[in-house]
Design a protein around this nucleic acid. Sequence first.
DNA 1: GTTAGCACTCCACCAAAACGAGTGCTAACA
DNA 2: TGTTAGCACTCGTTTTGGTGGAGTGCTAAC
Lengths: 350, 350
Amino acid sequence: MELDERKMKILQAVVKNYLETGEPVGSRTISKYTDLNLSSATIRNEMADLEEQGYILQPHTSAGRIPSDKGYRVYVDEMMREREATLEDKEKEINEMKDFLVEKVDRVETLLQNMARVLADNTNYATMISTPHLHSNRLKFIQLSSVEGNQILCVMVLEGNIIKNKIINVNQDLDNETILKLNILLNSTLNGLTLEQINLEMISRMTGQAREQGELVRDILDALVEAISSEKDMEIYTSGATNILKYPELNDSERASRLIGTLEEKKLLTNLITETGSEDDNRGIQIYIGNETPVQSMKDCSVVTATYELDDGLRGTIGVIGPKRMDYEKVVETLKHVKEQLDDAYKKIT
Amino acid sequence: MELDERKMKILQAVVKNYLETGEPVGSRTISKYTDLNLSSATIRNEMADLEEQGYILQPHTSAGRIPSDKGYRVYVDEMMREREATLEDKEKEINEMKDFLVEKVDRVETLLQNMARVLADNTNYATMISTPHLHSNRLKFIQLSSVEGNQILCVMVLEGNIIKNKIINVNQDLDNETILKLNILLNSTLNGLTLEQINLEMISRMTGQAREQGELVRDILDALVEAISSEKDMEIYTSGATNILKYPELNDSERASRLIGTLEEKKLLTNLITETGSEDDNRGIQIYIGNETPVQSMKDCSVVTATYELDDGLRGTIGVIGPKRMDYEKVVETLKHVKEQLDDAYKKIT
DNA sequence: GTTAGCACTCCACCAAAACGAGTGCTAACA
DNA sequence: TGTTAGCACTCGTTTTGGTGGAGTGCTAAC
């Protein structure tokens, strides 16, 4: 079941060649392409073995071979650690982007949106990027203000200057003094807590403390919890969805439509995000090939995700979605850079 | 140059038939389709005239005719006032949506996003919807708070409970008293003004009033003006971009890619929005056919836009983007309903 | 174990042919 | 004078058949 060195070399050649050309690759091509000095006939025998073992497959008899999901997997896991050499080019390339990125940007959301676009332009694949997950993020500041009548505005500022608002309807008129008291209560109790610490027991404790305004406080906290609840705690930006159409193997309207649809819809992408970060071996970068992806409509694609981490512990997810024959090396390299640059850019805007 | 009644009937038949089938329509089809009781030969003669006058055209010799932009225009302007009959169906259809629309929605943004989706599902075209234009919207409430160190948070609430935030970096520490004073100054001066009234002279007047804090006030107002400046004063939501791929005449990857691209990019759509509302004849509904649209990538499409108006004078734009052979009647009908429903739904959530 | 040779398969490409929808024109008709 | 039947013609679409080539698997020889 294991692959000897020669088979590895051949498999690698198949994958590399296929990544470059997008055409099934034949034995003759390989026999020239490699430094193995083997005839095409020998290669053929080896390729027959590789096919039997499930690493490559034939679209039809008398065509060359293309990598199977399993073949890509081996390639990604064991064969692609070398490109680091040409890294300077990329560094330059991306540094140019940097300026554009930070220019005129004053909030994280915009930064992330721009980054998604840059990444899409750079890779020619579709990209997504989530705002940081907030549940482990601390509350920095909370304030109620009476807007008019029985509406009060609740503003929360979280670490990283992420701002959430909510208008709350209450059924009693509140004078300024009451609001002031409430503000002090809320700030003194909640500041510095992470959002996941603000839970039910917390609420009932505070409800007790507030006595007369108990019910009001409950209303407010309920609204607050809802505003920052996990469902809404992050947004997802996508870019370059139409890059999908550049790859013939994804370009039938059925497939493409579903794919672009999920990118537009965004909800389904959360699967990708929650899953990322579990296996943190390769510097937080994870590769899903074909059926490995948790998103149904991407079964014919590969997805590379990375966890970015901003200065103050904010974490989010970046993803690149492309055809299975995507340039994994480049994407991984680029994502590593993006991770750093997000942090840099973020420091500049805060 | 004008069209007699018979020519009108024939043109109408061509358009209708083409809308239904998407295939070029021939003389024989028309001779059966209409109540004119004319032979196909006669129809042919008339169609030759219509073609000469530019109302219809032939994709190639020996194919049937399809409407030209000019033909669609006549159809839209003069021939399609009747479908109102089947209106009850639509009413039902959309009422079902209503519940879904308002469910769990607590802010305008979400309402609009949902509406875009419902509209897209309903029509099978791509849709866009802008948040209300704010420049004629009044400021209800403004508040500064010190968040930490030299960062202050500025929160603005506008009519319709639209909330804008901005974190402003100042180069001096501010004590609570100063902030309180500033708040009073800002509120007393700016409340009730529309955003377009807050302009440069306003700023310099206030800068003068604030004396010691003059520079600070300038900083704040600059930031404020920037935050609500026309560029950023509205967002655009799109939905159903992939519906484009359902129509063969738009489905070559070149065209489709540019179209979906502009929907994703959104910036270019502002053209459509600013233009809408100028000609307010047909209850604020405007139809752009082919080359009439102000957006380059939609030259092969038709676009129908409508101005919606919420209870308290907030106005925004809804748009439907589809092939030139879109079902104009249905779209116009639906948009009219949507306008009403947006207002209804909006009342419920405020 | 490797290689050359060969028969075989199957897709991609091309040209020719058949088809059919629809036209324009002409001549006859009311 | 307007309408209609008839017919030759056009042109895109589909079908058919043929050819070339890329690549394979297998066998026999090295």
